[in-house]
Design a protein around this nucleic acid. Sequence first.
DNA 1: TTAGCTGCAAAGAGTTTGCAGCCTG
DNA 2: CAGGCTGCAAACTCTTTGCAGCTAA
Lengths: 159, 159
Amino acid sequence: MSEILSQQEVLDRFHARLGASGLKSTQQRDVIVAKFFELGRHISVEELLEEVRRTAPRIGYATVYRTLKLLVEHRFATPRQFGDGQTRFDPADGDDDEHDHIICLGCRRVLEFSDPTITVRIQGVVAAQGDFELARQRLELYVHCKTEDCPHLAASKHR
Amino acid sequence: MSEILSQQEVLDRFHARLGASGLKSTQQRDVIVAKFFELGRHISVEELLEEVRRTAPRIGYATVYRTLKLLVEHRFATPRQFGDGQTRFDPADGDDDEHDHIICLGCRRVLEFSDPTITVRIQGVVAAQGDFELARQRLELYVHCKTEDCPHLAASKHR
DNA sequence: TTAGCTGCAAAGAGTTTGCAGCCTG
DNA sequence: CAGGCTGCAAACTCTTTGCAGCTAA
């Protein structure tokens, strides 16, 4: 069972891990990390940078990339590629907190779900295929949604 | 049930589809398409180009990219991103022929599998989540394999 | 004080595009 | 012969890196 941690708690844990690795916490990192956990999931570097610059306008791309890399290395973020060229990132609490995605090919909206039945079945599949240690699973369901404003409905007219 | 089609049959079907769309078949396209179906799955543009140049040394990157794009549009190929930065492509017979992957994070070897039980369960998940039409599913299992020569076993020593 | 960090700009990787000439239908 | 296709190089997008100055511990 994973508990829900407050933003502050996650930031504290991040600081603790930084310290344990001999790394520093800086104003920029704090702003980026706080915004990252405050905002929703599946955020791109560009979206995050834009938000972060409202607080700290002089922060550059490189710092955001480097901070996200740090987060990933310390398991506070999970990178995702949904096929549109950009990497997106999901917050994680530093432990395992897996979920999967439904992605609309028209409007690129993303929904999360998790299904324990599938997870169990997956473990069976891996065991059946050979001598492997499962590191992580990634399941993406690409759909067309029936929402009014989903561009794919008008795709044949425009573009 | 999907039948196994010979390389020639797939090439013929590709030509037929090209014609139906008012497109031309050329020497270069034939070489690229033939090699693509001859070689294994999950091939990258670079690997394919290298192979293709043994037959036709003057073929350039752009032609391979453009031909693969054509194949994808006509459902003769499926693009995959396993997180190492390059897009890989799987041959398909022009109809649906889905399978999923087990990827070793150490040696980047890729294994295929498909599991109907999971597919069925996925349809249930999608239906439960909202009003969607499932376009395709993608399931990737990242593992560490226990093979002798898998570099991850020596990862902590080297690099 | 001294690692480590930042911002900038330049460099890299992978992919796409513009264009003049070529080839297929 | 017309329109699509090719090869080349340049352009583009996303991401990483080198470096001089800055800052947290």
